[in-house]
């Protein structure tokens, strides 16, 4: 009989979440603020990991899905003055629809062409945010006031700008996506995605509609990334077009590569690590671009499986 690893996998993931909650009392204020941001961005990375890591689709356009959530939620809150929950839902829906349309078109191509097509669609999105500057205020961006970021649930009110609440909401969103990724990775669907990455032609001859499976992965990935974007707008109150720039398509690639593609823990690790590397080095030099560039090259040259990919290969084969 095969050993069942479900118990320890679930325990490990719950332990990670418990540690993140505990950090609320351990971390000083500054780092709690940083970690709230990092957790939201690692949700973005987890979304990217689903397509890049598991399904093997190298996209350079995921900034558009993050930005779709950011603008969907941000604009809905700013202009018609929607409350937090509808804005958040609208942001996620925007990302899902965009991923469906972009995925349907871009997945007709593979490999390098897929990368270029996704990059171009994302660039169109970025230019669109600049073109409608009267609405978006372009790079300068919109600032959502604290009144727009207060949830009233019956008698209770949740003030999303307040550091403790913000941190806990970030942990909450992270946990949902984190556990969802774990479930997907271990489900038949996760096996299908990995197998498509490994041998697409064989999958077709096993009777799988490869295009459809990839499209599903794209939409899920778009939903995760948009959830991160929408949460970013509502937690930190800033909506700017720099989040749609190509920079933000490359960063999740870097985070996922560093932590380990197709691992559930990799995106979190990669995001935390890179954020702090940039944070620490910026004390000595402003050359954070150099840090990112050197990190990318060293990773592909010497460490292509990333931290958790290597751990899984060497020691813990059961890591999802």
């Amino acid at each position: 009989m095969r050993t069942d690893t479900t118990g320890r996998v679930v325990a490990l993931h719950l332990a990670v979440i418990a540690v993140l909650v505990a950090l609320l009392w351990i971390l000083p204020d500054y780092h709690r603020g940083v970690m709230a941001r990092v957790l939201v961005l690692s949700v973005f990375a987890m979304g990217y990991n689903l397509t890049f890591g598991y399904a093997g689709l190298l996209s350079l356009g995921h900034a558009m899905f993050f930005a779709a959530g950011l603008y969907g939620a941000g604009l809905a809150a700013y202009y018609p003055g929607w409350s937090v929950l509808p804005s958040f839902a609208f942001g996620i829906a925007c990302g899902g629809v965009l991923a469906l349309v972009v995925g349907f078109l871009a997945l007709r191509t593979t490999g390098v062409a897929f990368m270029i097509v996704t990059m171009m669609f994302s660039q169109v999105f970025y230019l669109t945010t600049l073109y409608y500057t009267t609405w978006t205020r372009g790079e300068e961006g919109l600032v959502l006031g604290t009144d727009l970021r207060t949830v009233s649930l019956g008698a209770a009110t949740l003030e999303l700008w307040e550091p403790t609440t913000r941190y806990l909401v970030a942990v909450g969103l992270f946990s949902v996506v984190f556990l969802a990724t774990m479930a997907i990775a271990r489900a038949p669907f996760g096996r299908i995605l990995i197998a498509i990455r490994e041998n697409e032609e064989r999958m077709r001859m096993l009777g799988y509609d490869v295009h459809r499976a990839k499209l599903k992965a794209m939409v899920l990935s778009g939903l995760f990334c948009a959830a991160a974007g929408a949460a970013y707008a509502l937690l930190f109150g800033y909506v700017g077009s720099s989040f749609a720039s190509i920079q933000y398509s490359i960063l999740p690639l870097l985070w996922v590569l560093l932590g380990g593609a197709a691992t559930t823990l990799g995106p979190l690790f990669g995001t935390v690590f890179m954020f702090y590397v940039v944070d620490v080095t910026s004390g000595y030099t402003s050359a954070w671009l150099l840090v990112v560039g050197v990190a990318l090259i060293l990773l592909v040259l010497f460490f292509p499986k990333g931290v958790f990919g290597t751990i899984r290969e060497r020691w813990l084969k059961w890591l999802p």
Binding site: L253, G293, V294, L296, V300, L301
Partner: peptide, 8 residues
Amino acid sequence: VATIGLLY
């Protein structure tokens, strides 16, 4: 990925 690094 490597040429993106080079770009930065």
